[in-house]
Nucleic acid binder design. Structure first.
Lengths: 343, 343
DNA sequence: TTGTAGGCGTTATCAA
DNA sequence: TTGATAACGCCTACAA
């Protein structure tokens, strides 16, 4: 089979202990033997067995990432950041698609536990009591990305949804809009739903604008299709807003698509600003003005935080609120300065 | 620390061998002791250590996936399929972003080798001599997805690019188009470049249409930006085609975006058909008619093939040519039946 | 049906 | 600077 440390020891006429020392650069060998051993290693094509190593070290240099639907652009971008930096830090990542039912999530958690991974990253995932227990029992550090747990104190990295939604709405107002609708993904979602709605409302309030609950369209979810339906709903309700704040790029894209079908011009007849700023935002026509989450950076940050935690033996680490920005493209039109410009 | 098999053996008053048998359902224990042991396992919250298990079994129930840029919708969808089915088959997947330089790829290969993974899936990746050697040395099965190696005999799963491109072009012709341009990602790419161009040409040829090399626009790559540039080039060359076959959804989307800027109506002034049929194809306005690759299925198939190979000890397995289809949406217009309809 | 013991490939402790 | 040797947690003959 594969050559083992024993094989190289024998061929190099040294003990396995010596080979191990050289491999791990622990003190206790001469330059001479080092060269000799290295040579043999090359000849044999020896590769250390990380499994055996993991058994004794109780570290696998591997982390698990639980992520809903890898093929979402949002998730994909975050995963990208995680993967890049995890590997850079010497950690491999096992990804687990938690789409659909939470039953699968518990399975994943069990498997990851058995595989003795060193840590876990949870992306856009609500932390249930059961998950939390499972994680506590495996005694490994966790970090949350693009989500947060109010029930359990777990470090997270995300943007301030409330603030970001505020910024988006505020941006619209500063561009002269007074009648602004919002289309939200599930409105009861405690992390991506409620806070964004609140942000939207408080911007309205701050500028002395009236809040009309009728102008908040609750799409069931954050997908393209939901955005299309939301726009239909808007048309059916005969809402006479001049701008929309959509809670995700896909939602916005869906709304735009439907608007196009109905001959509604964007942005001349209707402005729209979205949330996330995935690649989709640039690829849609006209390209979307959007509140940007630094997705890749968030992944990177999470990987780095987790790394620190495993290195230090699970010491707690600060959560990070990533800065959001507005990237201006072409879906928001400045409204002529009629009577009431922003104060 | 974590309870081991020894702990449960002691507490259940049996030997570790018995516990092991029960755990692995190997013959040699009574129902009675089984219940007893299971009970103890529950009480202790015992979880088998897959690392130790992997050491003796020489199987880690883990595979590696080398994939360029997870955040591509194409790659993401394939990964999605792989991950879902790998887990379903009891395999965890370690993903490795091979974006950028091939140097990293060799590193990944080394790490995967050390981790003693059971198999490898290579997505959209050219197999170099060095990769091949590395893989051969680790003595694990491989399967290629969305790529193929002419140099080495490796099982793959992909669509027939030549045929798919033929179908796309043929579709355009059957819709009355005579002057058809093609925008290709790197034209020299032996798998996604050349064959698609050939398919395009042979459709033209079959229908007795003239091939004008000037009508083949070589975008540097397959991205949105490349599509935009390609469209600029088309406009600059004053090409008077009525339809475009774009070698990827992003390319098509980029072209559409640029066309929009120039006031070119799609499909009334210009038809366009794309390749891939990722989610992007539906989200663009108007939604793209596209040649569809069954991305998720391809991932699923690859995972299944690899599983068979690791189960059977690396026996060779047949490659799969997945069926492509054309999904009709709204970017191709039927040209009025002037003089020359398709024969 | 059950238990004992050797081995999987490393790391680490203790002598030498 | 080196080398035995005992873990690490599990599986699997072989015995009982």
């Amino acid at each position: 089979m594969n050559p083992t440390i024993k094989d190289v020891a024998k061929k190099a006429n040294v003990s396995i202990a010596t080979v191990s020392r050289i491999l791990n650069n622990k003190p206790g060998f001469s330059e001479e033997t080092k060269q000799k051993v290295l040579k043999v290693i090359g000849e044999l094509g020896y590769q250390p067995n990380a499994v055996a190593r993991g058994l004794v070290n109780k570290r696998t240099e591997t982390i698990g990432v639980l992520i809903p639907k890898v093929s979402d652009m949002l998730a994909a971008e975050i995963l990208n950041g995680i993967d890049d930096f995890a590997h850079r830090l010497g950690l491999s990542v096992i990804v687990c698609n938690t789409d659909s039912n939470g039953k699968r999530t518990m399975d994943y958690l069990r498997i990851l536990a058995e595989k003795r991974i060193d840590g876990i990253i949870l992306v856009s995932e609500f932390v249930t009591e059961a998950y939390y227990q499972a994680i506590v029992e495996m005694k490994v550090p966790v970090v949350l990305v693009s989500t947060i747990s109010y029930q359990f104190l777990l470090p997270y990295v995300k943007v301030d949804d409330r603030h970001a939604a505020f910024s988006a709405t505020d941006y619209l107002i500063r561009h002269g809009h007074r009648k602004i609708a919002m289309v939200t993904g599930s409105e009861s979602d405690p992390v991506a739903g409620i806070p964004r709605i609140e942000g939207y409302k408080s911007a309205l309030r701050l500028h002395g604008l009236e809040i009309d609950e009728n102008q908040i369209i609750n799409a069931a979810n954050f997908r393209f299709e939901d955005g299309m339906k939301a726009m239909e709903e808007i048309i059916r309700r005969k809402l006479d807003m001049t701008a929309i704040f959509a809670s995700s790029d896909e939602l916005a894209a869906g709304a735009m698509s439907k608007a196009f079908q109905h001959g509604i011009q964007i942005p001349s007849q209707l402005s729209i600003i979205s949330y996330d700023n995935t690649k989709l935002a640039e690829m849609v026509t006209p390209p979307l003005t959007a509140v940007s989450q630094p997705l890749y950076e968030m992944g990177k940050t999470a990987a780095t935080m987790l790394f620190e935690m495993v290195e230090s033996g699970d010491k707690m680490v600060e959560s990070r609120i990533m800065p959001h920005t507005i990237v201006e493209r072409q879906t928001v039109q400045m409204l002529g300065d009629e009577a009431n410009m922003p104060k």
